[in-house]
Write a protein that binds this DNA or RNA. Sequence first.
DNA 1: CGGTGGGCCGGGAAATCTTCCCGATCTTGC
DNA 2: GCAAGATCGGGAAGATTTCCCGGCCCACCG
Lengths: 217, 217
Amino acid sequence: MTASQTKGISILLVDDHPVVRQGYRRVLETQSDFDVTAEAEDATSAYAAFKAHLPDVVVMDISMPGASGLEAIRNIRLRAPRARILVFSMHSEAVLVKAAFKSGASGYVTKSSEPMVLVQAIRSVARGERAMSDDVAHVLALESLSPSASVFEQLGEREIEILRQLAAGSTQEQIASNLNISMKTVQNYQSLIKTKTGMRTDAQLVRLAAEYGLTSL
Amino acid sequence: MTASQTKGISILLVDDHPVVRQGYRRVLETQSDFDVTAEAEDATSAYAAFKAHLPDVVVMDISMPGASGLEAIRNIRLRAPRARILVFSMHSEAVLVKAAFKSGASGYVTKSSEPMVLVQAIRSVARGERAMSDDVAHVLALESLSPSASVFEQLGEREIEILRQLAAGSTQEQIASNLNISMKTVQNYQSLIKTKTGMRTDAQLVRLAAEYGLTSL
DNA sequence: CGGTGGGCCGGGAAATCTTCCCGATCTTGC
DNA sequence: GCAAGATCGGGAAGATTTCCCGGCCCACCG
């Protein structure tokens, strides 16, 4: 049923910036066996687009407003376990990379990579392999060696997402609404995050998050 | 000497992400009177590229690693006061926008804008006009209405010092001790600072302070 | 299987922090 | 002297934080 059976690789682009999507297209259309069949601009519409087009590979930025990109990945993989998702992100911090793979991503390429790195990575994941850019591999490799786990190591995915939104300046109410949980739960997580990381104030959390690239600032 | 005299608008692209630069190119090359003559990938090389090509318009992302994009703007305008610089950013916070214009930018367009918005903005700044995307205008307009004209200038010395320590991660208790005042006073200041600046959470205060260079981070 | 551990979700209650009110002092400038 | 404004803090109501608890689901293991 997918377009991949006979010839090219069909691709769904997910990014909230139109111009960046244009950039994907420009790079990808130089490859005759690539076919960009759809685009989506947020996590929620990503699954709809996936269902409608059943692309061979989803190329996705995970730092999008609102719902987490990680959740979108899980969402897609839940209903389509054979989906191949390639994360294309500004950040290469180990926490994020590991979270992405754990959520079901097949590859991870940073936006600072040369365009051809993205192209090669797409081919790899389309073949069912894992792929990542050099810088990501470097980060992961170092991470796997050091027994000194980063502060984030001990944070669950939910905790990381809440920390990210907190650091971005969202109020508890907004976070609760974004994640469809109660404010009480947000408060409990916030408190838990502080004890786990050893931070005492919200301000320290912001700085911690910024240090690890969780927020742009 | 520049290429603009007779026909098209020559453009220098500055962004640290190759793929994003491809996106610029793709959009801009649809315009027959545009001519993307150079690219740069960081703030420091931006001036060199400007000097070498003397483009009519510089399209620049200001959130780049290392040196501040704002500094690059100032750098260019210092030696070439007639340079036209259009900021193209992910963020539209009033502080950033104002800082950009203050540094010498001629326009400000967010990356979430439709591509044609960027195109029109480039034409505007090439004509010597100011230009910005709707969302940026919205933010600035609201800002100009609020009694907090400059958000920051209206803070007293004591308020700024407390904001600085807060943003640095100090607890109320530490601040009170440092300044030899009661915690209650610190709390009152903190509250006052929020209302004056329009920030709602501590996290937003940290980001505000960081954007103004109040804290290193 | 059933048990165990972990992540996720929230209630309860006391402690703490925030907000918005108020008055006090002190300096500055007219 | 007097007004303005910066600094300092109390009081009280409301919101947040902390720490405790139990329930749910899922993955792993004996």
